[in-house]
């Protein structure tokens, strides 16, 4: 799976968790926090994305992304090492 496809999965789950984002035009430098996702929402989005990717890694390894593009990058690298 490409990084772009992972980005699309993250944004899909972001919309599921925060329905108000349905019409939002997501950019790589959007931060989930600035889009209104609280820490619980963010953890849900990450968990749902990991499930969609069938990626079994500890959640704490996804910490450190400043925006959605960086999160997609981290998950892409993790998916490559499996």
């Amino acid at each position: 799976m490409t990084k772009e496809e992972i980005f699309a999965i993250i944004t899909r789950h972001a919309c599921e968790v925060i329905p108000e984002l349905e019409d939002h035009n997501f950019q790589e430098n959007d931060s989930l926090k600035d889009l209104g996702a609280n820490s619980i929402d963010r953890s849900e989005i990450v968990m749902m994305t990991l499930e969609s990717l069938s990626l079994k890694i500890p959640l704490i390894e996804t910490v450190g992304a400043g925006n959605i593009g960086e999160l997609a990058g981290i998950l892409y690298e993790k998916s490559q090492s499996f």
């Binding site: 820490s39 619980i40 910490v63």
Partner: peptide
């Protein structure tokens, strides 16, 4: 503390 890291560690 790092609230995000703590939350994710709790869930793990």
């Amino acid at each position: 503390g790092d609230a995000d890291l703590s939350l994710l560690s709790y869930l793990d």
